[in-house]
């Protein structure tokens, strides 16, 4: 029998063209030769328009995240693994176990197939390592100039155990605020690779799937109040979101907030505040004061929480201000991010 595709995809010199999004044979070939072998799972290989699965437990969690990062490849990762980690983390921040992912690709005409393969393989590797398969997907192609290489949207579902009630509106005065590690690494790694900034660093993105860390934390403290990953807008914006949702204020201790010296130095040079720089492998946790020590120990025992720290506490404040005692000894507000200092960071 004649092979379905006379010529295999040219991953060395070939490019995405409009036919790869046409729904015809060229698209089928892209699926057969790239996506199916990379993601390699029983749901996807059945080639249905949807994936069917049964889920344990009663409460499901669902989240979605679009990724438009520029550049597509950066120190410590690329848009592929970022798209997997980003959605796994959004699901995990409910204290849930992520189960399955869906992926939607918007490809720009002319994008090199070789780079697409690198991205898809990185995604598949991240999904395998996290044990969360990509079970369905979609590909569209837009004309040259109407996109910027690749945009990826991922959607994830997971289940959350009975008794776990993690939500951004549960912070209460007296609660402790913890962060899982150094802040600002991802944003600075991305910035260092932007073409118009001629500076080099050894900083790598912290992009990582946090559901393992979350599982260890929930096991140690099932009554955990809030979890959130401080991505765009950084730690400062995430804490302001939580303060608003819960109707509380916060008091931080600047000296306790972990920042890598290289990140701190890069931020000095670029006039940025690490509190506002994005992270992709860190989380903020809020728990009752009596649980804080146990939670911190559980975080520090996990490979992704080695430099976890308690950075402040929740206070009563109708104005919902996040305030900080500066390392210098003064006091100040830590406000919402204003404007857009770092576009397309994830």
């Amino acid at each position: 029998m004649k092979a379905d595709y006379i010529r295999p995809l040219d991953f060395r010199a070939g490019c995405v063209d409009m036919t790869h999004g046409s729904g015809g044979r060229a698209m089928a070939q892209l699926v057969d030769e790239l996506f199916l072998p990379a993601f390699d799972n029983a749901w996807l290989s059945r080639l249905n328009d949807q994936a069917q699965f049964t889920v344990p437990g009663r409460r499901m969690v669902m989240s979605t995240d679009s990724h438009v990062v520029s550049p597509l490849f950066f120190p410590g990762g690329d848009i592929g693994c970022l798209a997997v980690h980003g959605t796994i983390n959004d699901v995990a921040m409910a204290g849930a176990a992520p189960l399955y992912l869906a992926a939607g690709f918007v490809l720009e005409e002319g994008f090199p197939l070789g780079e697409l393969r690198r991205i898809v393989e990185s995604m598949a590797e991240a999904a395998r390592a996290a044990r969360v398969p990509v079970v369905c997907g979609d590909t569209k192609v837009v004309q040259k100039g109407k996109g910027d290489g690749v945009f990826i949207t991922t959607t994830g579902v997971g289940v959350v155990a009975d008794g776990v009630e993690i939500s951004g509106d549960r912070a209460r005065p007296g609660d402790r605020i913890l962060v899982s590690g150094t802040i600002g690494d991802h944003g600075v790694a991305i910035l260092s690779h932007r073409e118009n900034l001629g500076f080099e660093t050894t900083i790598r993105s912290d992009t990582a799937a946090l559901h393992g860390l979350v599982a260890a934390m929930v096991e140690a403290v099932p009554g955990l109040h809030c979890l959130r990953d401080p991505t765009r807008g950084g730690l400062a914006t995430t804490l302001n979101e939580l303060a608003r949702q819960s109707g509380v204020g916060m008091r931080l201790d600047e000296a306790a907030i972990p920042v890598a010296p290289e990140v701190s130095a890069a931020c000095e040079l670029l006039g940025l505040d690490p509190l506002y720089v994005a992270n992709e492998g860190k989380l903020v946790a809020i728990c009752a004061a009596g649980d804080a020590e146990r939670l911190l120990a559980a975080m520090r025992a996990h490979p992704l929480g080695g430099s976890a720290a308690q950075i402040g506490e929740v206070v009563e404040d109708a104005r919902r201000f996040v305030q900080m005692r500066t390392a210098f000894g003064g006091q100040r507000v830590v406000d919402w991010l204003t404007g857009e200092p770092l576009p397309r960071i994830c």
Partner: peptide
């Protein structure tokens, strides 16, 4: 951005 917490007391509505 940094100092307006001084203008009101925490019990006042923003």
């Amino acid at each position: 951005s940094y100092g307006r917490y001084r203008d009101t007391a925490p019990t006042q509505e923003a």
